[in-house]
Design a protein around this nucleic acid. Sequence first.
DNA 1: TTAGGGTTAG
Length: 482
Amino acid sequence: MGGARNVFDKIPRGASCVTAVISGYAQMGSHVRLWSCILPNEFTLATILTSCSGACKLDLGRQVHSIAIKTNFESHIFVGSSLLDMYAKSNNILEARKVFDFLPERDVVSCTAILSGYAQLGLDEEALQLFIELYKEGMHCNYVTFTSLLTALSGLSALDYGKQVHSFTYRHELPFYVVLENSLIDMYSKCGSLTYARRVFNKMPERSSVSWNTMIVGYGCSHGGLVDEGLSIFDYMIKEKGLKPEIGHYGCVVDLLGRAGRIEKALDFIKNMPFEPTAAMWGSLLGACRVHINIPAGEFVAKRLLDIEPENAGNYVILSNIYASASRWQDVVDVRKLMMEKAVIKEPGRSWINLDKVIHTFYSSDRFHPKKGEIEAKIKEIYAKIKEAGFVPDLSCVLHDVDDEQKERMLLGHSEKLAITFGLMGTPRSFMLRITKNLRVCVDCHNFAKFVSMVYEREISLRDSNRFHLFVKGACSCGDYW
DNA sequence: TTAGGGTTAG
């Protein structure tokens, strides 16, 4: 690229060669401010906008947007779709939607761009709704559209819709696209159907590294506690294969050690590695400190994590859980105060269950659900039954400083308990309950699900923001390790 | 000649 830039610097300015240079830079993932010296055309604008994706380049993107307005290219189909994509990728989905809504004509790319914008941000229900709308309006779909749609369906655990997409692509004899198949594997495994995921994987005529990763993640290998095997693979790649591990590999090792309770060793490993530790590393280690109740390490890790990621409410919640499990209530109160000082807002807990293609969503302490009364009665019945079988509520899961009775009531309002209860009410015993939760499942709800699976002889799959839990006969596939 | 959307991973 340096050569191209040298040539460029010597020739007179004109839109076409500038576009070629920008395009070169854009493909390399960087952008340049060359456009300030020329009058841009639709090619220039679309190219530069593509290189503006990402929150840190939003200002630049906005400047290009204003140029697009001035030059009357805002509604050009290519400029418009890269513009909306730029907004979506920098977390401004409302602005992206505005651009989309004002496009004089839509095509498969602009529709896919807005759809994937919603899906990338985890706005899965919105993505599905929009897809249904556009589809009814006769939107044209291709394999990229389905790939994006599948991302949203994975997030919703919407197995029925996912199967529909699969059979649609099958019926229409789409050529083989590895990206689409990868999305299918991901969808099936996130919907709890590993058999189908594996079937897709097996039938692929060729696979990318993503296919393997997706399949491995589906099987949950990194959560299996195979510490020595993991460490020897890490050694093997360095010593035998001569590969230089990337920061992600170091992250895996930290996670592996932490999960196995070897927290001091993990801290040591972090100290000696050639990278700055990331929030992800500290985050996984903090989770480990909670599971293995290591308070000094937890405080140490939390301090570093909250420096890098002070806005992530989940970090405070785990720290608070660590204190609560050691009955250090004053520290719990202090964490809560700290959250208020920093104006951190915990995302409200939300769980959902798909029954007959309808997504039933429950919020924590849901006061507005139409079947509120029935659910309350049923949950009381469940609670009494599982208590008889030995269930003890874990009050350390409550972040608020209230009396025990109220804590118990608050725990019963957790959204995954409501979803499980609702599922039990409306389905036969042989029906596996598939619940999805937007946050990490708490210890009390995890225990609740274990007891329900035993007392009611019901299999429950619960996907939280972190991993899968399959509850059968009182035990969970995660080995109480998440 | 030059242009827009896509999969996994704490």
